[in-house]
Design a protein around this nucleic acid. Structure first.
Lengths: 128, 128
DNA sequence: CAGAATCCCAGTTGATACTG
DNA sequence: CAGTATCAACTGGGATTCTG
C-alpha cells in the first residue's frame, strides 16, 4: 500500500505503488473533484460542463478530463456529427470514486463550522 | 454547501462557504495527508516526523503543520526544556478527518490496480 | 463544437544558511 | 531541537489565438 506499519511507521513518497500519492494526489488538484461531481447526474458535453463548472478555463477542463479519462474514471465518446459532439460520463470506477469522495466532502461539510471557528481563533491569537 | 442542486446542477468555486474548496483543497496539497497519517499512531515530535515522512523538507513540514494547526486538526505543544521539545498530535477534529480520509485512501488502495491498468491501456492506445 | 498550441505570470516548493 | 529567513527553480493554471 505504500503505507507501512513498521516499528516506526514511515510514510512514503515517490512510491509508484502508493495510492495516496498516486490516486489521492491525482484528484487533489484544483478541478478533478468538481468535474467528477458535475458528472454524477449523468453524461454531459464539453461546453455544458464548462459553463456548469464556475471559473474553469477551457484549457484546464480539457486537461483534467484527459487525466480522469486516463485513470479510467471518465469515458469520452465522440459523436461524428457536424458540428462534432463529445460526451463525457463516469465509468463504474469513476462512480465508485465519486461516492467515496462524496463521503469525505460530507464530513467536511458537517465540520466546516468547527474548522472555520478554529481558523478564526488561531488567527486572533497569533495577532497578539 | 456550495454544491447546489438546481435544474442544472452547478459546481461553484471561490465560495467561502464551500467545504469542497475550503477543506478538501486544504488537505489536497502535497503533504497534509501524509502528515495526518503520520500522526494517527499518536503524538510525535518535529524531527521525528521529518524523518518518518520521506522526502519532506523542514520548510514544508513547518508550514503544513501550521496550516493543520490553524484548521484545528493538529495540536502543537511546546515543552520548555533545553533543548526545546515540541510535540504534535491530532485533535478530535483531526482524528475525524483522518478517519474520513482513510476511507478514501482505502478505496484508492482497493482500486489501485484498476487505475494503473486503465492508465497503461490509455497510454498504449495514444501511442498509435 | 471541442479542442490544440503558446505565452507567461503567480504561487508553491526545495535548498541553503542562520538562530533562540 | 525546532524552527526562521531568503532566494532560486519549478510548475500549475489563466488568457489568448487558432483549427478540424
Amino acid at each position: 500500500m505504500g503505507l507501512q506499519k513498521d516499528n516506526e511507521r514511515r510514510v512514503f513518497l515517490n512510491n509508484e505503488e502508493c495510492p495516496i500519492r498516486n490516486v489521492v494526489a491525482q484528484i487533489g488538484d484544483k478541478w478533478s473533484i468538481l468535474i467528477l461531481f458535475a458528472l454524477v447526474d449523468g453524461p454531459d458535453r464539453f461546453n455544458s460542463l464548462k459553463s456548469r463548472i464556475e471559473g474553469i478555463s477551457q484549457r484546464m477542463l480539457t486537461q483534467t478530463l484527459r487525466d480522469l479519462e486516463r485513470d479510467g474514471f471518465v469515458l469520452r465518446t465522440v459523436y461524428p456529427q457536424v458540428p462534432v459532439k463529445v460526451e463525457y460520463e463516469l465509468t463504474e470506477l469513476g462512480k465508485g470514486l465519486s461516492a467515496s469522495v462524496w463521503k469525505l466532502v460530507s464530513w467536511a461539510g458537517d465540520h466546516h463550522a468547527d474548522i472555520r471557528k478554529a481558523r478564526q481563533q488561531y488567527d486572533e491569537e497569533s495577532e497578539r
